[in-house]
Each structure stands twice: as structure tokens, then as C-alpha cells.
């Protein structure tokens, strides 16, 4: 995890690569092309690139229209701004089941200079509650590239959540990601840390420190939040008996909720939630700073792990 690579850059490159191979890919953007790195595609394929201006509702519907005729539109803006078109996403993408790939850039609190208007801490909750929409969140630059290729092949609406951050590279080139599947990326049997996005790297760091203290944490990377890999989650609850979820999103409605919904029906175990605690995060000096100061630090994960193991002990 020494190499640091920008996820949005990796997204932009992947989009261009896929666009070279697949002429059905078209790109629609709402005046943030150079920010979310669709400009690589734009320069190479201007005829398959459409800028709708600052018109997020139109953005989504233009994508829906293109998909009706067999194109695979990648529809781009900041995740927080995409929510302006919630109704279009529900009706014209989810309900109408159009093959639109919605891409929310600058997700979570990664746009640290711009503050709460630009953060996106409810997007997973919102997207996950819309029938038919697949929700994917890559953990690093490698996984971003792989996921872009995967969702081109995936038929149906997808929400892809991309961070603005430059994050440590976790996965090598042989990393495999399958839509709908989570993966164990570190073994352990005292508890499981289930993480998405930038919190995957932090969870691995936390697991390393916990090991030095004699706690063996399993770490699961959950790049697809919907459809949810229930079997893996139930198996891990049975095996480790305690769970910490970690996400750069509100603790309401995201990964933690998905895990709770799954386990409360099938195999309840103690769960602790790492996420943004139902508040608007302020502007910061860096993304890392914000994560560290709003409950998403490596230490917060470690504390949650210790707490959940104690709760597990109390149940026995």
C-alpha cells in the first residue's frame, strides 16, 4: 500500500479504455468534465461526449434516452449533485430499468475544500433504496479500473461511487472483482471488519495494529453494496461472531445498514458502525484530516473492534 493513485484519474483512464473497445459507450456530463476526468474520453471521442451544462436532471434523462437506443451511457457529476436528480433516477433509470451507468464523483467527504454542500454522505442510502439499481464502490485505483469494465458488461442501471481522493493502492493487477460479490482480503477469526471505498485501506491498517495486540481481525472488501452478498456476510457472522462496518458515508442507510438488515434476519451478532454520525461535516485542510477527525480514523476502527469483541464476550 505504498503507491498513492487518484481514483478519479483511474476512472477517467478506464472510461477511455472501455470507450476504445466498445463504441456503444457514450459519456454525458454536467459541466464537471475536467474535475471527474471524463475529459480523457471527451478529447478522444468528442462525437460520443455530451455536456448538458449545469442541468443535473437533464443529465440523467439524456442518459436514459441514449440507453433506450442501445447505447451505454456513463452519466457523470459529483455524487452530492447527482442527488438533485433523484426523481429522474428513480423514474427514468430505476423504474424504467434503463441501462444507465450513473457515476457520482467527489463522493463522501473527499471534496474537502468545498464543504458540506459538495459532500455526499447520503448517496449510498438513496441509491440502495431504489429498486433495480446496482450500487458499487471501489476501494482503490486498481479496483476502480476493474469495476468500470465490469459495469460495462453488467446489464441494467448502476451507481458507481468514485472518490476524489488520492488513495493508497491496495490491489495488484491480478485483483478480481465481481459485481455482487464481496471478498475476504485478510483472514482472522475474532471479528470481521467490513469496509467499502477508502475505508478498506484504513481497515487493513487497523487489522495490522490489532494483530500486534493479539486480536485477529478478518477484513472484507464489499465493493458491491447492492445486490448484497448475503452469504458472505452470514458466513462471516457465524465464523467471527462480531462485526465492525466502515464507510465514508452516513451511519444511516449505507453499508452498516445493509449488514444489519441482513444479519438481524438471519444471524444477529454485535455490530459497531464506523461512518459519519448524522451530521454535516465541515470544510477541511485535507481529506485525511477530515476522516481522522470525524470518526473514520484507523484508531476509531480499532476502538470499535475492541468494543464489539467485548460485546460478543458478554453475549457468551
Amino acid at each position: 500500500m505504498d503507491r498513492i493513485i487518484s481514483m478519479r484519474h483511474s476512472y477517467g483512464e478506464a472510461l477511455l479504455d472501455c470507450g476504445i473497445k466498445n463504441k456503444k459507450i457514450v459519456v454525458v456530463v454536467a459541466d464537471v468534465s475536467s474535475s471527474v476526468k471524463t475529459d480523457f474520453f471527451e478529447k478522444r471521442f468528442p462525437e460520443r461526449f455530451f455536456n448538458v451544462g449545469i442541468a443535473e436532471q437533464c443529465l440523467v434523462n439524456v442518459g436514459a434516452g441514449l440507453s433506450l437506443e442501445g447505447f451505454i451511457p456513463f452519466v457523470n457529476t459529483f455524487a452530492g449533485l447527482l442527488l438533485r436528480s433523484f426523481e429522474q433516477i428513480r423514474t427514468c433509470v430505476g423504474y424504467a430499468e434503463t441501462n444507465v451507468k450513473l457515476v457520482g464523483g467527489y463522493a463522501g467527504i473527499s471534496d474537502y475544500k468545498d464543504g458540506a454542500t459538495h459532500y455526499s454522505i447520503c448517496d449510498i442510502a438513496v441509491m440502495r433504496s431504489i429498486p433495480n439499481i446496482t450500487v458499487v464502490v471501489p476501494a482503490d485505483a486498481t479496483e476502480t479500473k476493474k469495476l468500470v469494465c465490469e459495469i460495462v458488461k453488467w446489464s441494467g442501471p448502476v451507481y458507481l461511487r468514485i472518490s476524489r481522493a488520492e488513495t493508497p493502492v491496495i490491489f495488484g493487477d491480478n485483483h478480481k472483482v465481481v459485481v455482487g460479490k464481496g471478498q475476504i482480503i485478510r483472514e482472522g477469526d475474532d471479528l470481521t471488519i467490513i469496509a467499502v471505498g477508502v475505508m478498506v485501506g484504513r481497515s487493513l491498517l487497523a487489522a495490522n495494529i490489532l494483530e500486534q495486540e493479539g486480536v485477529k481481525a478478518r477484513v472484507i472488501n464489499m465493493p458491491t453494496i447492492k445486490p448484497f452478498d448475503k452469504y458472505l456476510i452470514i458466513e462471516t457472522a457465524q465464523k467471527t461472531g462480531a462485526i465492525v462496518t466502515a464507510e465514508e458515508h452516513s451511519v444511516i442507510g449505507g453499508l452498516g445498514s445493509a449488514v444489519s438488515e441482513c444479519l438481524s434476519q438471519s444471524y444477529p451478532v454485535p455490530i459497531e458502525f464506523i461512518g459519519i454520525k448524522d451530521l454535516f461535516v465541515e470544510t477541511g485542510t485535507s481529506h485525511e484530516y477530515l476522516l481522522d477527525h470525524f470518526g473514520l480514523s484507523v484508531n476509531d476502527i480499532i476502538e470499535a473492534a475492541k468494543k464489539v469483541i467485548k460485546r460478543k464476550g458478554n453475549i457468551k
Binding site: F50, Q57, N61, A64, L66, L68, E69
Partner: peptide, 11 residues
Amino acid sequence: LSIASGIGLAA
């Protein structure tokens, strides 16, 4: 109209 625009571009 915005959906028609997407279809129009596709056409």
C-alpha cells in the same frame, strides 16, 4: 423533452 434529447442524439 430531455429523454427525447437523448434519443435524438442516439438517432
